[in-house]
Amino acid sequence: MTTLEVRSLVKDYRLRDGLRTSTLRAVNDVSFTLDHSRTVALVGQSGSGKSTIAKLLLQLEHPTSGEILLDGKPVARRGSGLAEYRRTVQMVFQDPFASLNPFHTVGHHLERPIRLHHPRMTNAEVHRRVLHLLDRVRLSPAENVAQRRPHELSGGQRQRVAIARALAPEPGVLIADEPVSMLDVSIRLGVLNLLATLQREEDLGVLYITHDLATARHFSDEILVMYKGEIVERGPADDVILNPRHEYTKTLADAAPNPERRLGELRR
């Protein structure tokens, strides 16, 4: 039961060009709430500030102003409070080819977070947990997969390892930054379906960052449309896609491949 709340978040970056400096407002006055077992999609094109929000939520960047509240309490800046926050908020990255270390086995990738967060666990228990995690992301036979290295797996399988790794510390919130955009179209829905199932089982809040409107619509409860650092439209998923009100949402919806539209033209 975790609620992550963001209140009027602002992030400025200072840009330097020789002796002159200017500020770029990457995130401008963004507020939203991520409740347990709900999915919020953050859509927008490259450079709209989606990933900056992910970095802010993960405490990889500090906001210029505004606050991030976990269960109503502001995030600790150091010590055990921060460690606890990091355990609760986990991340799945975009590129499963870059986010797994080619030198280590799949088992090693899953052991690390378990050991970090449960330092007193015995080796046998850790191993059992690793296998259990692999089973949960449907990578079977788990015993065999645990010994493999990332290059022996396909993109979809690697991304499932990344999901298992994010689930290892038993988080309450999962931030998924374009989790399927690097994968083949044919397995994207499978991975999203798995993510939705795990979300239900674990009662997770999920922030789904993407530029693919079609999956955002079917995968999430609420959609936030970002443009140049601001949220220009928000609402229940179907409303935003089927009746877009803001100009930019319409542009995005038009840009998405939609075979029905073209084939309608061909038939005529």
């Binding site: 179209v185 397995i187 079609a214 999956t215 079917h218």
Partner: peptide, 25 residues
């Protein structure tokens, strides 16, 4: 295997776990 933007196809994503979807992988 791809959801439709305006139609209903794809709404099963949040339905029950369907292992067939991952069978290809």
């Amino acid at each position: 295997s791809f959801p439709s933007l305006t139609g209903d196809r794809g709404s099963f994503v949040r339905g029950a776990m369907d292992d067939r979807l991952l069978a290809l992988d």
